[in-house]
Simulated assay, not measured.
Amino acid sequence: MLIEGYDDGPLVAGESLLARSGFWSNYLLAMCSDGSSAAHPVPEWFGDDGADNDALSEVLFDPERWPVFRVPAADGPGAVVIYRNLVGDYGIDYLLTHPGRSYAQQIASWEGDLSGTGLTWHELVRIADTPSPAAEGVEDTAARLLLVLPLLTEPDVPEEAPARLSAALASAGAPQDTASNTAEHLLTRLTKRSRHDPTWGSPLSGS
């Protein structure tokens, strides 16, 4: 697979991995710890178990195959999530694709925390809710929201955000009775470390 603007490694389509047990706990579990809760995040919060998590880790972090998750949008910028599996330099890179551009723009990376430029809740929802059937990638709106969620850099999310995130988690396999609690943990962590400044230009503007 080739993504113009990103030439770092052996990229492979990863969208089929979203349906595998262990994916969402691998992707989001570390983001559930806000440093203040007595509850220790576990894979079961996402409907997985430790064996699921460990087995899929071997696939997701394979230095010979870097999974790519495309989140194209029908109208406006979309996103690309790439597992950067350089030995000794593992991380997840986040790119934006812009209409009219042939190349993707890297805006952030996750290596225990987000570095780079993030997005507001409304910008994440816009990407999630506008799938492009004409382009290859993830079409399910719940999975799309969860994939771009780590880009959230807004300290005050709308009051509907927890319910929307809880529904997305449940759709992705999280237990119904704990999905809302998991959503709260994720939002607490992501908004607590938020560095969004309303005076900054959004990367969605194409600037």
Rank of each mutant, 00 (worst) to 15 (best):
Met1Asp: 00
Asp7Trp: 14
Asp8Cys: 15
Gly9His: 08
Val12His: 00
Val12Tyr: 00
Ala13Asp: 00
Glu15Asp: 04
Glu15His: 01
Leu17Gly: 03
Ala19Ile: 03
Ala19Trp: 06
Arg20Ile: 07
Ser21Thr: 02
Phe23Asp: 00
Asn26Ser: 10
Asn26Thr: 09
Tyr27Leu: 11
Leu29Gly: 08
Ser33Ala: 07
Asp34His: 05
Ser36Ile: 09
Ser37Asp: 03
Ser37Asn: 03
Ala38Thr: 05
Ala39Glu: 05
Pro43Ala: 02
Phe46Asp: 05
Phe46Cys: 13
Gly47Leu: 01
Ala51Asn: 08
Asn53Thr: 04
Asp54Gly: 11
Leu56Gly: 05
Leu56Met: 12
Leu60Lys: 01
Glu64Ile: 11
Val68Ala: 08
Asp75Ile: 01
Asp75Pro: 01
Ala79Trp: 12
Val81Gln: 04
Leu86Cys: 15
Gly91Tyr: 11
Asp93His: 13
Tyr94Leu: 09
Tyr94Trp: 15
Leu95Val: 15
Leu95Trp: 11
Leu95Cys: 15
Leu96Trp: 09
Leu96Glu: 07
Thr97Lys: 05
Thr97Tyr: 09
His98Pro: 01
His98Asp: 10
Gly100Leu: 12
Ser102Lys: 15
Ala104Val: 10
Gln106Lys: 14
Gln106Arg: 11
Ile107Tyr: 11
Ala108His: 09
Ala108Leu: 09
Trp110His: 09
Glu111Lys: 01
Asp113Asn: 08
Ser115Pro: 06
Thr117Trp: 05
Gly118Thr: 11
Thr120Trp: 06
Leu124Val: 14
Val125Asp: 08
Val125Glu: 08
Ala128Glu: 14
Pro131Arg: 02
Ser132His: 11
Ser132Tyr: 08
Ala135Pro: 01
Gly137Lys: 00
Gly137Met: 01
Glu139Val: 01
Ala142Val: 07
Ala143Pro: 12
Leu147Gly: 13
Val148Asp: 04
Leu149Glu: 08
Leu152His: 01
Leu152Tyr: 03
Asp156Ile: 14
Pro158Ser: 14
Ala163Cys: 14
Ala163Pro: 01
Arg164Tyr: 15
Ala170Glu: 07
Ser171Tyr: 13
Ser171Ile: 10
Gly173Phe: 07
Gln176Met: 08
Asp177Gln: 04
Thr178Arg: 02
Ser180Phe: 15
Asn181Glu: 12
Thr182Phe: 14
Ala183Asn: 12
Leu186Arg: 00
Leu187Lys: 00
Leu190Arg: 02
Leu190His: 02
Arg193Ile: 10
Ser194Phe: 04
Trp200Glu: 10
Ser202Tyr: 12
Gly206Lys: 07
Ser207Asp: 13
